[in-house]
Amino acid sequence: MTLSRETLINLILIVLLAAVPFVALGIGQPFYITLATRIAILALAAVGLNLVLGLGGLVSFGHAAFFGIGGYVAGILAAHASSGEALMFGLAGSDQMPVIWLVTLIVCGIVGLAIGAVSLRTSGVYFIMITLAFSQMIYYFAVSWPAYGGEDGLSILVRNRFPGVNSMKPISYFLICLGMLIAGLGLFSLIRASRFGAALQAARQNAVRVAAVGISPYPIRLAAFTLSGMITGVAGALYADLNRFASPSMISWHMSGELIVLIVLGGTGRLFGPVAGAMLYVVFEFALGGLTERWQFFLGLILLAVVLFARGGLLGLLAGKARHG
């Protein structure tokens, strides 16, 4: 089997990302490990969004809601675990990552189902606005909830645990996040190759025609939206554990925008688009942010250039138009 150009580039990207922390340790600059971990987490969040945005063509401007919910689930469970106070319904908190992720999946699944069920009845600009509205509702709820920090956010005193691994060690935590990213990418590629994935993409290209072959677009989109929120939610839980802090800023509309920007930079609908986008974004933020406080201005210029001259994003530029890889 010969590797397509895109597959090759994908392999290079993931190897590059995986190599960063080891090089960082080698040159005695462990800070770069945190940077690579941030890339892996943002990429995972964007993989989730890519499911609806890239495959389904649905521009959700509210995915920060899931990202933030994931963060708060991690924060709240950890807070209760350390204080020993019972959570609602007498349930105990937990400082175990697998438990936190499971709870995140359940909560984000329920929220995603609810937001999706309402939002997907609209389309186009209305869909963008209604997803934004839902995430802003959750944002203001977090801001005005004093029990869990309100506007100040919620600190996680000790990073949550992962069985058999010392998650406090930066490189171990990076590997956990990289593992989750790879799992997310695997899930995305499975979905894309499935009949469900084909129908989701077909619905993006021609919703009327999909109905005419006997598939109702709504439940397919709803399933995709829910799944997408769940993936982004887990990334949020990881992000809160990375910073040991969950804050309302994770739910702000800036975050939703950032996720969309990541995908557009990397390549919409492509398996590794989010990875390429997150790498570009974090590296820009770091390199340009060191030079000027107004680094976002330059990011804007780059985004403009991508939209005008490289519609397929970085991957489109490198691997050509064909989508499969």
């Binding site: 009327v208 999909v210 109905a211 005419a212 072959v213 006997g214 598939i215 109702s216 677009p217």
Partner: peptide
């Protein structure tokens, strides 16, 4: 009936 139902 909805179009997808007719198709089914």
């Amino acid at each position: 009936r909805r179009p997808h139902h007719v198709a089914r």
